[in-house]
């Protein structure tokens, strides 16, 4: 069975490695200090797509992201890792979207891609940690969802069997296609970028990038259709502007505060024998431990 697989991906600031320079003095985030990366769990989702393709030759993997032009970087990365096609959904009308408006736009783009058997995405993105977009896309496409997926056990006769994480355990579920799977970080890691694919696809670019001054691969792009990353606007996917971006977002951010922890007076010790001995003595005598 040839499958049409869509992988949803997001470019995120690497919030896992927030260093001292990541926060400005006024408490706002210094985005420039944080590298923009492929959301980690979306890579786990891509790996599941690549495995499905290996087991079902002739399948096609399309990676879709919504974001500004620079998000094309993760689409190229997806191509290096084995995706067949990439789509950038980019429009000012999408700016300021909450999860509901985001899922509306993504669902509209998926409908434009056409028939699909499986939509895969990460369980959540590390900048928002909401885990909402996957289920909301599934609902808007009218297909079932299986969240927290760890492993695809089998796919046959129009049904998929998936192992998923639950509180303190695992569950195996069977569901009809088409469906949406959100994949969590406990699933297999994504395979590395393939050097031969990098040699070819580092020239892949969106029409906007191709039109920019200094683009060096015009000849190659003209000769190889696969090097054009599709770029869709709201009008291309036929969406309703009122359901996108800020106007399509029921939730509003009222206030954002930097977190400040109350500093305490602390007792200081070195690693010397005497110091550790006296620390243990104090903790025992004041019944902190023991």
């Amino acid at each position: 069975m040839k499958l049409n697989i869509i992988v949803l991906a997001k470019q995120v600031p690497d919030t896992r490695n927030v260093g001292g320079d990541a926060m400005n003095a006024d408490g706002t985030i210094n985005r420039a200090a944080l590298p923009a990366i492929f959301n980690p769990e979306d890579l786990n989702a891509l790996e599941q797509a690549l495995r499905l393709k290996e087991e079902h030759p002739g399948s096609r993997i399309t990676v879709l992201t919504m974001g500004p032009q620079r998000a094309a970087d993760i689409l190229r990365e997806a191509l290096y890792r084995g995706a067949d096609e990439a789509v950038l959904l980019s429009d000012r009308a999408f700016a300021g979207a909450d999860t509901l408006a985001t899922s509306y736009a993504l669902a509209a783009a998926i409908k434009k891609i056409g028939s699909c058997d499986i939509v895969l995405c990460g369980r959540q993105a590390i900048d928002g940690d909401t885990a909402q977009v996957g289920p909301q896309v599934a609902q808007q496409l009218g297909i079932p969802q299986v969240t927290y997926a760890r492993r695809i056990v089998s796919l046959q006769d129009g049904h998929i069997t998936v192992e998923r994480g639950i509180e303190n355990g695992v569950e195996t579920v069977k569901a009809p296609l088409p469906l949406l799977l959100t994949v969590d970080g406990a699933a297999a890691e994504c395979r590395p970028q393939n050097v031969y694919r990098m040699l070819r696809f580092h020239r892949a670019a969106t029409p906007t990038e191709q039109a920019a001054e200094g683009f060096r691969y015009s000849a190659q792009v003209a000769a190889d259709e696969a090097l054009t990353i599709k770029e869709w606007t709201l009008a291309d996917v036929g969406g309703d502007a009122l359901r996108c971006g800020l106007s399509g977002s029921p939730t509003k951010v009222r206030k954002v505060e930097n977190i400040v922890f109350q500093a305490k007076e602390s007792k200081r010790y070195t690693a010397s024998d005497e110091d550790i001995k006296s620390l243990v003595g104090e903790l025992l005598s004041n019944h902190t431990i023991g």
Binding site: R16, V18, A22, D129, R254, V256, E257
Partner: peptide, 15 residues
């Protein structure tokens, strides 16, 4: 908390 826990956001649903 948002942004990896580095900020705290207050969210409302006005309408």
């Amino acid at each position: 908390p948002a942004f990896g826990g580095n900020i705290v956001a207050t969210i409302v649903n006005p309408h």
